[in-house]
Write a protein that binds this DNA or RNA. Structure first.
Lengths: 350, 350
DNA sequence: AGACCTTATGAATACGTAGTCATAGTGTCA
DNA sequence: TGACACTATGACTACGTATTCATAAGGTCT
């Protein structure tokens, strides 16, 4: 008789497993002989509970396999500990950014809820989806989020931060790399090594980062009397770059250098040029933008502007989670980039 | 007097904006003169409400800027419409898989909640985090999720599916590419083109996919009297492959072909070999595994086993969302891969 | 010892929705 | 016309937790 450890409790357990219902704080309260309020306190503010009670509750919880229900917690406390991210489904750059967000948010014990979209048209759907979950904040990545959509965000109570989306400045707090200066510095580098003619290959000309990066290149080059025609690849993909390079190669007057608006496109351009018999850097110099991991791979070894993704992301999270209602004007953080000097601008005839 | 469209309503709006509180179904009910229940029905099962009422409620909701609260809905309905994903934070392969999951889940109007981890030790934290949210299911990616952790998943009520994680078979429903046969087919391809000696470079030898892929290579090669020593790169990264290639190059007896357990490592191996003056495919043939987008890039043009990520993901989602309690044994889906023939196994002396 | 403060706990309530049950109204058939 | 089926709607409750308020116990100070 005396060897029976906890009679009613194990019956409890069996009942619950049978009914296949997760244990609640009420169950734990009954099991440990305290009130539901105390159970809640044990899991949310343990120091308000005496050590003895705490232990009693903890062990009861363990026995029942109790896990606090974050949904209920969120409903009551009005915070979800979840940050949303509206991001394009594809693209090396965004995948890297996303991974970094996820990592840093996890460190702060936030989760990341993903709202990805394949086509720009899907953004609306993603955004209205976002509104349903009462997130603690939302990251708006991708420049294909329109002004009107940003405006709607602005009027909603949801804290938001635009990531690398210069067009959002003034509407929504934003964090970006210094696109214009970065591209200008790359241009300056080309000037320094004696380039006399150049061209620029962008992804999609209507995208704000594309425009600003191009502007940086044009202005810097113009100061040295160098023109810089714009070529549109049509997408931010390897293939688009590959094709653009093919067309460029057919021209009779090849520029001495080509500046590409993003690394992923630049890889395509590089391979496309080689395929057309144009050797980089022998026949033509090449620069990228973003600083993707692949840019450092020996196969490419691309000169590019490296975005400090970790810093950008850290800033974005700071802005997002410290959005006190007292913000009169949306913050707008700009982080400088760093040039990575690769073989694609190493003049062989130097 | 008669020109005043809706007196109390606009006051309502102002009050709410002032108090900065989101409108609820109760507010909408008051505004439109119906009960809260009817408002709820308009948004969850519209066909149970007469068209007239429906319209009345919709317009009131619009006026108040009402958006249904998914948290409350989830609490009540016991389903969240959210699927969790436990995934390594880094690695090309996982990033691609994740993007595909996100895309396909969005299509089925599910959201993806990300639990990424940087080190294998962080998996525990991620998993206990997962348990708090009452997700509709969870995707366990990465082979670094241990057996005991899988066992715990199994006993929890949460539907789970292991993605490309052969070790999980029998414990948890799983979906994988056919690692063993895939690698064997690559080996067979090498045999067919006359390779006489080979080596295998894996990532981490304790990982189950690594072991199974190696087994596939070894067995097929053994049938043709070819040995295949195992070399461990130490990580599933470009750098690890690059270093491994450097060490391999110092040997005096170079194999005719090297099979690498994953594309990302293979890229490193390729560049590392070239760096050591070993030309692929002239001096050595090379195969990868996974079928990353970069494998098709002209710069690499790698022979590899392409995983049909879209199919794998679709299968995983199916298994996850159709997990009827009636499943006696965990399903275990294996999807065949397809060889991509690139320049890295194109014998120049043929 | 009385007044007072601190700590630990419980009872009760609210978060915003979905679903159950009851009810009034409307139409159908014999 | 009465019995019956069906539709549209409202009142009410439950989901599982956090928090406020009240209360009891214990400790401290003069």
């Amino acid at each position: 008789m005396g060897a029976k450890p906890e009679g009613p409790s194990s019956a409890e357990v069996r009942n619950r497993q049978q009914s296949n219902r997760r244990a609640t704080s009420v169950d734990v309260a009954a099991e440990s002989g305290v009130s539901q309020a105390t159970v809640a306190r044990v899991f949310s503010s343990p120091d308000k509970v005496s050590p003895a009670t705490r232990e009693k509750v903890r062990s009861a919880a363990e026995r029942l396999g109790y896990v606090p229900n974050a949904i209920a917690r969120s409903l009551k406390s009005q915070r979800t500990n979840i940050v949303g991210a509206v991001v394009p489904a594809y693209g090396e750059y965004w995948q890297n950014v996303l991974a970094e967000f996820s990592r840093q948010l996890a460190q702060r014990s936030y989760q990341l809820l993903l709202f990805s979209f394949a086509k720009p048209d899907d953004v609306d759907g993603a955004l209205s989806s976002v509104a349903q979950y009462r997130l603690d904040g939302v990251i708006l990545a991708s420049a294909t989020i329109g002004q009107s959509q940003l405006g709607r965000m602005q009027s909603s109570a949801l804290p938001a931060v635009a990531f690398n989306q210069p067009a959002a400045e003034g509407l929504v707090p934003s964090v970006s790399v210094d696109n214009e200066v970065g591209m200008a510095e790359l241009a300056r580098h080309l000037v320094d090594i004696g380039v006399g003619t150049a061209a620029y290959i962008g992804g999609v000309s209507s995208v704000s980062t594309d425009q600003i990066r191009y502007r940086g290149a044009v202005q810097e080059l113009a100061e040295h009397g160098i023109a810089c025609p714009y070529i549109e690849a049509g997408a931010y993909t390897y293939d688009a770059g590959y094709k653009a390079a093919g067309q460029l190669a057919q021209r009779d007057n090849l520029p001495e250098a080509v500046m590409v608006g993003s690394d992923e496109v630049a890889f395509g351009v590089l391979d496309g040029l080689e395929n057309a018999g144009i050797s980089v850097p022998r026949d033509l110099l090449l620069t990228g933008f973003d600083g993707l991991p692949q840019a450092s791979w020996a196969g490419y070894d691309l000169t590019t502007l490296v975005q400090a993704t970790d810093v950008l992301v850290a800033q974005a999270i700071d802005v997002l989670l410290s959005t006190n209602g007292a913000a009169d004007k949306p913050a707008s953080v700009v982080v400088p980039g760093t040039i990575r000097y690769g073989r694609t601008t190493r003049k062989s005839d130097a």
